[in-house]
């Protein structure tokens, strides 16, 4: 978009702010025990106040109540939602707004967060009507999914007497899908693949090391001429410039020289909590690896560790270190 086109677009979308998203909606059924029971079964919620008449009667609630989180369920129209009118003029404001986005390339949609507040318990026989207003549209944001805008709606839920029973804020991202995500989703359509850790490429100077690890051995390269150990491997000895080398097998006994706990971003294929550490080995070289088998908060600089080679996922053999 040129700056002028962008301005026209922004004016168009901002015109929707403050509008009712759609006429008030009410689900086909009033609050009822059958739907409550199904919902509790599916969610695995065994609280008897939702399903056991006698228990509920004896409780502070006095009778069966609906799980608060069902709030929105009572107002949903069901399948008709998914077949909107072909006549553009009959579309509700939300669909009109999304169409403006779609027409400008913001074809992606992603629900990002939802918060609900509950003002009273709902009981069988209650009716729930949802009134939704388009509350705000953010400035343009660059997200991992692509460039887009967050649309936030506020829904007020009322009962048969017009009394407010709950409120919900819902945020969706309308975005221009990244090229890289498109490639990824195209890949997804093939057979699903469990992600694995990012393996080291294997070249002339390092493949032998990884091949030993695949066999369960962690080698340390040794200069054949002056016996100096070196890690990571390289083609020449920095002490004597010899290119002749062999290796010893590390006992994998050492101590933590420094460490970090990885929080964000989390990468597919890695198991969190995840601790990476620089470990000083008894042989005198250092190695970067993971600390496992203890809580992250228990890892300390100077801690003694003992390692072994483990299969960490379908494709990857790695040395892993445990508290000694």
């Amino acid at each position: 978009m040129t700056p002028e086109e962008k301005k026209v677009f922004m004016d168009k979308i901002h015109a929707f702010v403050g509008m009712e998203m759609a006429p008030p909606t009410k689900g086909p059924d009033d609050v009822n025990k059958a739907m409550i029971r199904h919902w509790c079964e599916v969610m695995g919620d065994a609280n008897p106040v939702y399903t056991d008449e006698a228990f509920a009667k004896a409780s502070s609630k006095g009778s069966i109540i609906a799980p608060p989180a069902m709030l929105q369920a009572w107002s949903l129209e069901g399948y008709p939602m998914h077949s909107p009118s072909k006549d553009e003029a009959l579309l509700d404001n939300q669909r009109k707004l999304h169409k403006v986005f779609d027409d400008h390339g913001y074809t992606g949609v992603l629900g990002t967060n939802c918060t609900q507040e509950y003002f009273r318990d709902l009981k069988p026989g209650d009716q729930v009507i949802a009134h939704t207003v388009i509350d705000s549209i953010s400035e343009e944001k660059a997200t991992q999914r692509g460039i887009g805008h967050f649309i936030e709606t506020v829904t007020r839920f009322t009962d048969q007497n017009g009394e407010k029973v709950g409120e919900m804020r819902f945020r969706v991202l309308k975005f221009i899908p990244n090229e890289s995500n498109k490639v990824e989703s195209a890949k997804d359509e093939g057979k699903p693949e469990v992600p694995t850790r990012i393996a080291s490429p294997r070249g002339h100077d390092n493949a032998w090391w990884w091949q030993q690890v695949d066999k369960g051995v962690v080698p340390i390269q040794r200069c054949k001429n002056c016996q100096t150990l070196r890690h990571p491997p390289r083609s020449m000895c920095g002490e004597c410039q010899s290119i002749e080398w062999d290796f010893i097998e590390s006992k994998l006994e050492g101590e933590v020289f420094s460490f970090v706990e990885l929080h964000y971003p989390k990468f597919p294929g890695y198991q969190y909590p995840l601790i990476c550490a620089v470990i000083s080995l008894g042989e005198g070289t250092r190695i970067v690896s993971n600390i496992v088998g203890c809580k992250p908060e228990d890892v300390k600089i100077g801690m003694k560790v003992k390692g072994k080679v483990e299969q960490v996922d379908e494709k990857t053999m790695l040395p892993q270190f445990y508290p000694a």
């Binding site: 850790r197 990012i198 080291s200 490429p201 020289f257 460490f259 995840l274 970067v288 993971n290």
Partner: peptide, 26 residues
């Protein structure tokens, strides 16, 4: 330098923050 990163990526040290944090902790 892909081979160089290969000493770190399998363990999860993938970002500038992760490399710098290692020095910072120490």
């Amino acid at each position: 330098d892909a081979l160089h990163w290969g000493w770190y990526t399998p363990y999860g040290l993938l970002t500038p923050a992760s490399w710098v944090a290692m020095y910072t902790q120490r």
